[in-house]
Design a binder for these strands. Structure first.
Lengths: 374, 374
DNA sequence: TAGAGCCTGGACAACGTTGTCAGATGCGGG
DNA sequence: CCCGCATCTGACAACGTTGTCCAGGCTCTA
């Protein structure tokens, strides 16, 4: 774990006590009375300070800061000078308290470092920016509790809206928030036990098409490696795999499927098992990005050519030998669509929650077109 | 551009006016007087509402919410029930206003979608989390004005600290913020005209080592493709290139260097030019991630083998044929180090600004060890 | 049984901003 | 010269929370 034993504990619930004496430490605010030339010592100038310096009223400063009409150019100049001189910056917390809106939206995703979420996050940010809002984001690390913790922290900060890539399966804890008017859109996976907007990729259709592609190239023994079925996308992709196999009248063997496998070592083992034995698979369908990459590594060490189709595109997939055929989903489009719906909720254009599925696209690059090496 | 003509304009400076009638629209707050069973209609319950429902005083609710001592179990239970029933969530804006700290830090980087910044961002987030703080981030898109806009917006929201990957070269606009006690750390590139903490990779040393590596493998005509020298890292890497060449006594020809080139098409053209003509380069040093990838693409189409070393590692570099030799920097370490310094500033452990350089690591994978094909 | 001391709970002000409203100022016309 | 009007300005309350401080009720002891 990370070290967090510092004295910076903004949300600390304990009363600070001096280690040696056991005395209560004098809280910061008690020391703040001292004034140095009009501004609180060690603190930021307020509109009041600006007003005093410019020799005008408080509200006049407010008007200048917000570009409201009704201030003579001369007064405005004096105020501007005072602002400049003091380095005044409006306190948006106070503003929010008064106005009710924060002009910020929250994004909760699984892991910012995952290349799939980078573009998604960026797309959400761009839409937010176009609406004058800032983006606060957090990674749930695929942990439902951490997701809830994050979401509630964002709500406590009164974000105007939430874009959530759910880790958990039960989002009833959001009900009071929805009632309070927090716009909410779920992305990539549907919300659990709650009626809300959802924007998804067509995981089922994409996986079915990808597997059908392998079947069309003559494969019958096709492996599937994917995440835990409790994750909606993983379950849907598995369903797509099964559907394609069933459509082709191929009974699926137990040993061809590896579920809930996600870390490289286990993926590696799973792939190696499928590829050994008396009747090894001749093709593999990889349920996501990370799995695909690991499988590529395994296949690179493998002598017999094995076909591969992966769900989700990745950089350089075209440069590998052979290029990796993938079912591509558009992460940026997911983010953009979700954010746009969010802001339409906020301006009242949107009322009824909907479920939107974005199509996927099969990109053939070679690995998915290899014939079975029986 | 993105559509932003909605009625959601939280930071709008104009007074809302009805399009057709020209009448001023009644502002939200004017409608909020209506009360429904104790809570503001369409609004969130406050501690006052909880207090009323639980039949206790306001401060008692505050105590329960913050886990402060001095509340009988029975009272606490009643308050908890009221909180539950009303779906109360503490308003952190008000809290901030009162306490002075927001428990959030801002991160301004170039582009969240860039694979280099994902891990960096995540590392900052983890440290923040360990300190109970949330992360707000924004992309500057390498635009100094947008950087400043973002930073100031974050300051207005009173983030406790800032981690900035600077796009601009002049950060004097941050002076009032620093004076006001906003902890600030610059990452990846140094701050301009201001005295602040900086955490960098050793771009100069890394580039010098990378180029020296090529020289050690017999190359003398070595190309350099990098970003605009106004970007500090780009300038440093160029300096490293020149230093290595000079150390080896190789005079650098003008045509070997391509600066300020960053989009794929121009990188492609630059690489092709270096590789043609009477005395083409036999090796290329790529100044960053994106350049490296594009050069790999060009070389893949090229018949004669050309050695390549890239600055900054990327996923799958090992899987290409040949594997790409890189000077790796640790993005996560950059983020972690920066964030840790930030919180040490916040708890007062750290006072004097410092410049920290993190070492790079040469990872040989094949492309950098190719002999010159003279 | 009275008084000291502790524990619990609540009234109140303050944080920095914005909306309301009324007062001040200046100008032109009667 | 004074009134009316428009324009500009400022006093004040409110937003929801937390820190301070005091009151009232309890227990314990002399």
């Amino acid at each position: 774990m990370l070290d967090a034993t510092s004295s910076y504990n903004p949300m600390d619930r304990r009363i600070p006590v001096d280690d040696r004496t056991g005395q209560r430490i004098v809280p910061e605010t008690a020391r703040r009375g001292d004034r140095v030339s009009g501004t609180r010592y060690g603190n930021r100038p307020t509109m009041k300070d600006v007003a005093a310096r410019a020799g005008v009223g408080l509200k006049t400063v407010s008007r200048v800061v917000n570009g409201e009409p009704g201030v003579t150019p001369d007064t405005e100049r004096r105020v501007q000078e005072a602002i400049e001189a003091l380095g005044f910056r409006r306190n948006d917390s106070a503003r929010v308290l008064r106005k009710g809106r924060t002009a910020s939206i929250g994004l909760v995703l699984e892991d910012l470092a995952d290349p799939f979420y980078g573009p998604l996050s960026r797309a959400v940010e761009e839409v937010a920016r176009a609406h004058g809002a800032l983006l606060i984001n957090g990674s749930s690390a695929e942990d439902p509790e951490r997701e809830q913790e994050l979401v509630l922290a964002l709500c406590a900060r009164r974000v105007d809206g939430l874009v959530v890539i759910p880790a958990g399966g039960d989002h009833r804890y959001l009900e009071p928030e929805l009632r309070a008017g927090v716009a909410t859109v779920f992305v990539d996976r549907p919300a659990g036990r709650i009626d809300a907007d959802v924007v998804l990729s067509d995981s089922f259709g994409g996986a079915r098409d990808g597997v059908a592609h392998l079947i069309a190239h003559g494969h019958r023994r096709i492996g599937f490696i994917g995440d835990m079925p409790r994750i909606h996308t993983a379950a849907e992709r598995l369903r797509g795999y099964r559907a394609a196999m069933e459509d082709a009248g191929i009974p699926v063997e137990r040993s061809w499927m590896s579920l809930g496998v996600t870390d490289p070592q286990r993926v590696r083992r799973a792939a190696e098992e499928m590829l050994s034995g008396p009747a090894p698979v001749t093709a593999i369908f990889a349920g996501n990005n990370r799995v695909t990459v690991t499988v590529v590594r395994v296949l690179a060490e493998h002598d017999r050519p094995v076909a591969l189709v992966g769900f989700d595109d990745f950089e350089l997939a075209d440069l590998l030998k052979p290029g990796v055929t993938v079912v591509a989903q558009d992460a940026a489009a997911l983010g953009r669509t979700a954010a746009e719906r969010l802001f339409r909720q906020l301006d009242g254009t949107l009322v009824t929650p909907e479920r939107i599925e974005l199509p996927t696209r099969l990109i053939t690059r070679g690995s998915g077109e290899l014939p079975p090496a029986d």
